[in-house]
């Protein structure tokens, strides 16, 4: 199996334009498998935009144009032959605000496996759902009410449900767009522990505006500023001994 240093995602000269706005400027980065990589930076710096490039969520925005290459396992995901639908099965995503579907907890988690045809029978599907919920550390809380609506859970539970939903499709990469920004501190701790745990099986990329969170959960950190990738390296190093003065300013709270 792969070691911690295997490169899963590699971006080359990625540029993103929204109409006239140059949102991402020539970003090059290599993201390791089986690790948590954090994107930090002030709001509007492009970190979320870049994250959404990795599973082509930007395709759903008409005015968005992406150039450059993003390779996953050596394959360019912006190649014409790539179906974004197939790509997104491989690269799951968790959003800023918990967005469970207005369905039961079970159906929320089973949604991905159903559309991708991952289960051959009801019992297989049951197993997938249970597994995903267990991995997302929410099984014990919901096992007795799988048929209850997912929207009835608390915010933290909803977010873990959304993670379970993403995990259930068996992705290889998990993208998380500020997954804790709308959660209270206790729920945040639970989700952060979960992220740390998920690292064992997935390549996790997380966008966060909280430097502390980045320091707590990630092994690698990338600092974005005004659409540029300013600095990328081991989390410890970025937070203790940044090379770029802009990173230093941000970390010490002078820009933000």
């Amino acid at each position: 199996m792969s070691t911690e240093d295997t490169i899963k995602i590699s971006a080359k000269n990625v540029q993103v334009h929204y109409d006239d706005t140059h949102a991402i400027k020539d970003v090059n980065v290599e993201i390791a498998d089986k690790a948590v990589t954090a994107f930090i930076g002030p709001s509007g710096c492009g970190k979320s935009t870049f994250l959404r490039c990795i599973n082509r969520m930007n395709d759903t925005i008409d005015i968005c144009r992406v150039t450059g290459e993003i390779l996953i396992d050596g394959e360019d995901i912006y190649d014409k032959r790539v179906d974004p639908v197939q790509l997104r099965a491989k690269v799951g995503m968790v959003f800023q605000k918990p967005n469970p579907f207005p369905k039961s907890i079970y159906d929320n988690v089973a949604y991905g496996p159903r559309i991708h045809g991952l289960a051959n029978s009801k019992s297989e599907l049951d197993d997938i759902v249970e597994n995903a919920l267990r991995r997302s550390a929410i099984w014990d809380e919901v096992k007795d009410r799988l048929q209850a609506p997912g929207t009835g859970l608390s915010g933290g539970q909803q977010q873990r449900l959304c993670i379970a939903r993403a995990v259930a499709t068996e992705p290889q990469v998990l993208l998380m767009d500020e997954p804790c920004s709308s959660l209270d501190p206790i729920a945040t701790v639970q989700v952060e522990e979960l992220i740390d745990d998920l690292r064992k099986s997935y390549c996790v990329v997380i966008v966060t505006h909280s430097m502390h969170q980045a320091a707590r959960v990630s092994q690698k950190t990338a600092f974005f500023h005004l659409g540029n990738l300013v600095e990328f390296g081991d989390t410890d190093k970025i937070f203790t001994n940044p090379e770029d003065p802009r990173t230093e300013s941000y970390i010490s709270g002078r820009i933000g």
Binding site: E75, V82, D83, I115, E170
Partner: peptide, 20 residues
């Protein structure tokens, strides 16, 4: 998970069906 190692550059049968 290794069962999922399927190139992104080719469409699998299910995706074709779904696209149809």
């Amino acid at each position: 998970m290794s069962a999922m190692k399927h190139s992104l550059l080719t469409l699998d049968a299910r995706t074709k069906k779904r696209n149809a």
